[in-house]
Nucleic acid binder design. Sequence first.
RNA 1: GAUUCCGUAGCUCAGCUGGGAGAGCGCCACCUUGACAGGGUGGAGGUCGUUGGUUCGAGCCCAAUCGGAAUCACCA
Length: 881
Amino acid sequence: MSEKETSLPSKYNPQDVEKGRYQFWLKGKFFEATGNPNKEPFTIVIPPPNVTGRLHLGHAWDTTMQDTVARMKRMQGYDVLWLPGMDHAGIATQAVVEAKLKEEGKNRYDLGREKFLEKVWEWKEEYATFIRSQWEKLGLGLDYTRERFTMDDGLSEAVREVFVRLYEKGLIYRGEYIINWDPQTKTALSDIEVIYEEVQGKFYHMHYPIKDSDVTIDIATTRPETMLGDTAVAVHPDDERYKHLIGKKVILPIVGREIEIIADDYVDQEFGSGAVKITPAHDPNDFEIGNRHNLERVLVMNEDGTMNKNAGKYEGLDRFECRKQIVKDLQDEGVLFHIEDHVHQVGHSERSGAVVEPYLSTQWFVNMQPLADRAIELQKDEDKKVNFVPERFEQTYMHWMENIRDWCISRQLWWGHRIPAWYHKETQEVYVGREAPEDIENWEQDEDVLDTWFSSALWPFSTMGWPDEEAEDFKRYFPTDVLVTGYDIIFFWVARMIFQSKEFTGQRPFKDVLIHGLIRDAEGRKMSKSLGNGVDPMDVIDKYGADSLRFFLLTGSTPGQDLRFHWERVESTWNFANKVWNASRFALMNMDGFTYEDIDLSGDLLLADKWILTRLNETIKMVTYNTNKYEFGEAGRYLYNFIWDELCDWYIEMAKLPLYGDNEEKKKTTRSVLAYVFDQTMRMLHPFMPFITEEIWQKLPHEGVSITVAQWPEVREEFHDEQAAKEMERLVSIIKSVRNIRAEVDTPMSKEITLLIQAKNDEIVEELTNERAYLERFCNPSELVIATEMDVPEKAMSAVVTGAEIFLPLEGLIDFDKEIERLEKELEKWTKEVDRVQKKLANKGFVTKAPKKIVEEEKRKEKDYLEKQANVRERLQELKG
RNA sequence: GAUUCCGUAGCUCAGCUGGGAGAGCGCCACCUUGACAGGGUGGAGGUCGUUGGUUCGAGCCCAAUCGGAAUCACCA
């Protein structure tokens, strides 16, 4: 083994530790899937971030969880493929590039389609580089040899393949329907891209005059400007109030158009006046009614939300300006007779925030029902279904699938996968195909592109070479093992991946899907640009290091819950990292020249050694178990407690005894245990804090080139020592009691005291005598007596532990009244415990029905408590007497 | 209207498919012990929202109820 630097600076500095480490990993190709046939594959595909900008804390959280799983699996010997990539994010990306153009006083039409797309590609390259550098800072073990982009050739081929196949099966169709129109970005949206918000609006009540009569019919609306497109008034067929009017004509005010009063079951007699204006071109329900009654569809708006020529004198006005005008005019004409406040839900575009307009338009749709049915069916097979973690999200998913609506997939954008449909210039014939038609000069391709999510839905298999089903990666790494994402995109993405995967590969896209929540600010608000409360993960890393950020994210919440960001909590994880650092520093300081080959655990182990190895076993068990269940918080807590409380506070303190002593044999054993425990601990901590653990591990006696490919710790039964655990417990109780009494009488550790330990039997005397050195180190006695029988001085403080009583003769320091008071409290405590246990044991139901193990445990406790109670009582009587 | 989540120490949250209430931060007292003063030791602080039920036993299961949040669907 070559000579190496074994010392560490006294302060943990994440910048120094993390610098260059990622390059070392990449150079070693530790993150590249090997394809090794002797290893079992384990696959994760990254949820591709949008190429619109910086990664936020949500990405950091999401990817850290994936990295943690991937790193553990890699160490466990799997051939791990964690595939990186990015999403072209149609609307979002086009919007930012257009915004940039606007700054230059241009728009996309000035450039033209081709030039504009060149600009977007430039933007994409810039941000892809930026995103990769952020992944690097987070320490993500990604296989860059397989990085993908949703608009790569291969992925685009997959998109066309899926489109064509669905079209050929009749599952994709084109038609004129009411869709959600965003007048700002001038594109159609799918239903889930519309966010409904409660808005304080108005409810306008109007009289529509009935032709050839002096009566009117009252109707109400929240969007009075749409009345320009009314082509009927509908009432319920059974409504006694209106039955006689059915078939009569109404003169549409302002417009003067004659429209019919029709009867339709859809109308709710109870709501409003029971009569509804019907605008088939601007309302989905009215559209349906219009179809049933063969009504004319009158579109009154342009694509940008201004009124068109059908609006007559209102032509050119913005829809909201038109509303104001028309309200005024209707009032003047006496048609509009009442306006009331009305709170209702108004749809807004997820991307632009604009009020969405229900709008008649020709678009492409996916006929969802058959696909959804198959996805629902999939969940019925326990071995083939997608396992949601936490389980409850499966219900959310299923509910959506069971109430599925057709998916509008065309978008009036330029950035994205252009729809593979061509229209014959003369015959208007439609051609859908993987390639353009041969006599291309006679055809025109559809101008529109596909919804971004159409390509993301194929991500788990399009990235692996599909539609080539013989592609090696596809055969080996698909289906993937786990997908990690937030609950906010279950519908957008998770659900769509599942039905597309089922349809095209016949399989689930991933075995597990781990759903996490949202990151919020310290007050619990969503982080958003408008609030300006966002925290840049790179700022956190600059301040506290990636390891601290990661550990905070992993341990900050439980699966499915939201996570609040608190700087103080990141700081406290930094403290933990610093603790790990300094404990390792101590270990290294005592390991000069010690090599991995020198580790020898076969010698005589001291109590502390046996105990820490037992605790290590337990920790390995719990960390592995919980990480496998994606319970990173629990796993992290086991690591934290083991390292801080057991390893640092007890083991290291106890190890100082042999390390600072002159028994070379014992020193070597302790060094072995230290080296072994630190090695194993660093490995376990590595998926959580990759940088610091690699740094320390490299300096520890170790074997292998990188901790990233070191073997994951295994429980070693030969190290499990129940007896040592018990003895350690007694020892710790004694030490803590002494500390307590010292605190009570204000006697710091530096002052020596006399310590008398009266053990219950000879075995315990022997046991404690063996551990005498520890007692001396931790209690600092001038005199230490351990015996079964002894003259107990009257003037002494005392305490009881299991199997022994301790006395500290502290003449002059003791306030006897206070000591009696303290012991009485103690007695009360044990009496209470005894009562509780005895009551439990006297309960026949408990003894007969509770598991044996529990009953035995209670019996053992009863014995222990009775003994302690008796000892305290006796002592109290002595003092009083 | 349907569904879901949350309510536990001053604050932020854990609590492992029911078996004696935990952590971090904050607070109080003490400690310059040779890895760490961003440390150590000791301590205070909780009717586990409320009420019922199931059970030998409930923070955990069931029902109801109060309060907070989210998602979906909505009547013009």
